[in-house]
Each structure stands twice: as C-alpha cells, then as structure tokens.
C-alpha cells in the first residue's frame, strides 16, 4: 500500500438521522500505521463515524474514503476492513466453531491458524454456543473474526465498554500484541481515556458531532502547555498561541494553550500537559471546531 494513502479520510462528512445530527461537517485524515483512539462522550458521533467507514451507514453529506476506496463498495473493499461492532454481536445459537467457519467461508483472506490459536489461547470451546459466552469471551470471539480476515484496517467500536476491568486489561494487552505482530492500522473508539492513553499513539477527539482535534499523541503533547499564573495576569496571548481552556480560582488562573514554540512570558509558570487533560479540554471547549481541527505536527 502506498504510504500517502490515509486509512480514513473525510471531507465535510455529515450524517443525520431524521432531525438528529450525529456527525456535522467533519473533515479529518487518519493516517495508516497507527493505533488510533477515537475519543468522545457518548453520542459524540464515534460509532457513526466507524459505521460510515465500514459501509454500514451512508453519509448524508460529504465524502469518506477508506484506504483509498469507497466504504463497503464491494467484496474487495470489505475484505480490507475488519470491524468489531459495539456490544460484539455474535449469533447466539451458533457455536464458537460455527463462527470460525463463518469467518473462513465469508472471507477469502481468512487466517485459520491465527483464529485457532486465539480461540485456544482464550480457552473458548469450539462446541459452545456463542450465546452462552461471557461478555469478555464474546468480545474475544468477535475480535477473532474481525482480525482473522487479516484486514489492513481494524475498526473497533467501544470494544471494552461492556467488559469488567480485568477483561478490559486483557483485551487491550491482546490488541497491542496483535497490532505489533500484524501491523494493521487500528482505530478504536472509547469514552474511557485511560484505555486510549494505554494503547493509542494517535487520537481524534469528537464532541457534538464535530472533530475537535486530531493528531499524533506526541505532537499534541509537545504543542500544548499548561500555564499557571496569578489571577491578575492578562490572559491575552501573543500570536501563535491559542487558549483551549481557562480555569480560575480566587488567586490563580490556569490556561491550556496550543503553541507553536516555547513560552517565554515570565508571569506564567509553564508545565507539560497530560493526554487526559488535553482531551478533556478539547471535549469541553466551546470553540469553533474547524479552527481547532487542523493541528499538525
């Protein structure tokens, strides 16, 4: 695959369900070769974006291109994208073994050995009905089907939301290992920042159906600073610096800013920002989305 093809590229993408707008005028490019966190509150449009990317939904407006093709355009395009839907749907009255058959018969690139290995590793009995699996086992089965087709792009919609903490930790550890071994681009949505922080090296923050910020985690952390100063200091910033959020106590003011270079103003005490703090600032920021979306390295 050519290196200049983005995994997901949207251009003024909108999706409305009747009167409700789920995605509004989103323009974003998600590069290949990363584990990407799609972050936002419930109802921010994460699930809608992923379903548009796999072709389950059609855009109301705008375009979306996935690995250079139109989502769901045909068997070949479908084969390139693996998808784990929210709540990991499986056929309750089919067995685990049946699901492996399903994956094998419906996907030309099926990796039987990989699928078998995973089923054994997680102690799933091929004869057991999928309807009787625990939430964690069901997620592992569904992920096995998604990864068994050996996709170039793996989309996971809230893969850990329904899992208990231990299962969640195992699931993410396994996912990291998969990403390292098979190198697909992974996009996973989550409203749990700690999970994203653990596994993702690229984030896209959605709020209110819009992309608030997107970029490599390292770049984002390098280009954002927390400024702390006395309450009396003016919050006016020099060119090249933009305040994302501001909070005040009686005596002190804290700003989260995006900056192209180092901050030299002696009135501010400058410190680094954590990913969680940064993402939360963007999620709650009441700023025009488009001016923020284009944060580049």
């Amino acid at each position: 695959m050519s290196t200049n093809t983005n995994a997901i590229e949207t251009e003024r993408l909108s999706k409305r369900y009747g009167r409700r707008t789920a995605l509004d005028d989103c323009t974003v490019a998600i590069p290949t070769g990363h584990v990407v966190g799609l972050v936002g509150a419930n109802g921010a449009g994460k699930s809608t974006l992923l379903q548009l990317a796999v072709g389950l939904l059609e855009p109301t407006d705008g375009t979306i291109t996935v690995l250079g093709g139109r989502p769901g355009a045909g068997p070949a395009q479908l084969a390139r994208v693996g998808f784990l839907a929210q709540d990991a749907p499986v056929y309750g009255n089919l067995t685990v073994g049946d699901h492996l058959q399903l994956g094998e018969r419906l996907n030309p690139g099926w990796d039987r050995a990989l699928a078998r290995r995973r089923i054994e590793r997680f102690g799933l009995d091929p004869r057991q009905r999928a309807g009787r699996l625990s939430g964690g086992q069901r997620s592992q089965l569904a992920l096995t089907i998604a990864i068994g087709k050996r996709p170039e792009l793996l989309l996971l919609d809230e893969p850990v939301a329904s899992l208990d903490p231990l299962a969640r930790r195992e699931f993410l550890a396994d996912l990291m290992q998969l990403a390292a071994e098979h190198q697909p681009t992974v996009v996973l949505s989550s409203h749990l920042l700690s999970d994203v922080e653990r596994v993702c090296d690229h984030v896209v923050v959605l709020a209110g159906g819009r992309v608030r910020v997107a970029g490599d985690v390292d770049d984002l952390l390098a280009s954002h600073k927390v400024l702390t100063g006395a309450r009396t200091v003016s919050t006016a910033l020099p060119p090249g610096q933009t305040a994302i959020s501001a909070s005040h106590t009686d005596r002190q003011t804290t700003l989260l800013i995006r900056t192209a270079g180092p901050v030299h103003d002696p009135r501010w005490q400058v410190s680094d920002v954590g990913l969680e703090e940064l993402v939360l600032a963007y999620m709650s920021a009441d700023v025009p989305a488009r001016s923020l979306a284009a944060v580049g390295p």
Partner: peptide, 14 residues
C-alpha cells in the same frame, strides 16, 4: 440482535 453488523462486514456484500 445486531448480528447484521457482523454479517455485513465480512467480505461479502449485503
């Protein structure tokens, strides 16, 4: 049951 999201995202068009 949501299984259409499983079925329709294999390498077979709906």
């Amino acid at each position: 049951t949501g299984t259409h999201r499983l079925a329709w995202t294999q390498s077979v068009t709906r």
